[in-house]
């Protein structure tokens, strides 16, 4: 069983986002980047499947984007246990999902796979999710919002859960090869020591492959804006006691919390 995991970095939401001078994108000058959390779940699932008796290799692909640090992302994959890492194409800025899918499809013509896993979504996939876009390009079946991945012992099918609203889940059987958009992993993504990642960035082999642009997303971004937050909320400030006092009064107006208090 050969697994391919597609990963990327996204802006760290712990930092403030700002809009660029054009008003149509993020100001990238001061952004810091982190691995997209769903992609990390996809990697963890691939490593678990490989190590829980199914064997094979885990190959991680990421686009060669100049923003952020794709080498660190791929070295982290190796530190966690990936067998092989490949940087695909060369992009000044993070490309849209359609372009990413086209580039990954180019590279995957040269990589063997039985199962392709990626994050179900990313915080910046305005033009849709890479998993189904790539699958359709490669004429592979795809399932999004997946948990509970189980490989059949004969390695020709995989059983997965797809999540719906209200906690309802559909179980599907998919013929391999297939593409899965992973919602969460059975275990918290494993930790890799920073020292090990730094060492691998110097010593490990990060392969490079060409990946073309494709025709783009076909979307025209007219404007990006930070929505007005708190525009409707009345903000409460003060020390914790003063805040508690005010919230208690708001609740008491509705007859909540008073019976116990008095």
């Amino acid at each position: 069983m050969d697994y391919v995991v597609l990963l990327k970095q996204v802006p760290d939401l712990a930092e403030e986002l700002e809009i660029d001078a054009d008003g149509t994108g993020l100001d990238r000058e001061w952004l810091s980047f982190v691995a997209s959390e769903w992609d990390e779940y996809a990697l963890e699932e691939a490593l678990l499947l490989r190590d829980q008796g199914h064997g094979g290799t885990v190959t991680c692909l990421a686009l060669g984007v100049e923003t952020g640090d794709v080498d660190e992302l791929l070295a982290t994959c190796l530190a966690r246990g990936a067998d092989r890492v490949i940087k695909v194409g060369s992009f000044e800025a993070p490309p849209d999902s359609h372009t990413a899918a086209a580039a990954f499809a180019d590279a995957l013509a040269h990589v063997h796979y039985d199962l392709i896993l990626t994050g179900v979504q990313a915080i910046d996939d305005l033009d849709g999710q890479v998993g189904p876009l790539l699958a359709t390009r490669l004429d592979l079946p795809h399932v999004s919002v997946v948990t509970h991945i189980a490989l059949a012992h004969h390695h020709t099918t995989v059983t997965v859960h797809q999540e719906y609203a209200g906690g309802i889940v559909a179980e599907f059987e998919a013929t391999l090869p297939a593409v899965l958009g992973v919602q969460t992993s059975r275990e918290t993504p494993r930790y890799a020591p920073v020292s090990r990642i730094r060492q691998l960035m110097k010593t490990a082999t990060i392969e490079a492959m060409a990946g073309g642009g494709g025709a783009g997303s076909g979307l025209v971004i007219e404007a990006m804006a930070i929505p007005e937050t708190g525009s409707t909320a009345e903000m409460i400030s003060g020390n914790p006691q003063a805040i508690a006092e005010r919230i208690a009064a708001i609740l008491a107006e509705r007859g909540i919390g008073t019976a116990v208090a008095r």
Binding site: E234, M235, P240, I243, E245, V260
Partner: peptide
């Protein structure tokens, strides 16, 4: 973004606010 749907908002660490509120109402 939670503040965009909230009627009342507090910018604070919940670990400071929650014990105070529990003490106040309970």
């Amino acid at each position: 973004p939670i503040f965009s749907v909230a009627h009342y908002g507090v910018v604070a660490d919940l670990l400071d606010v929650v014990p105070a509120l529990t003490a106040r109402v309970g």
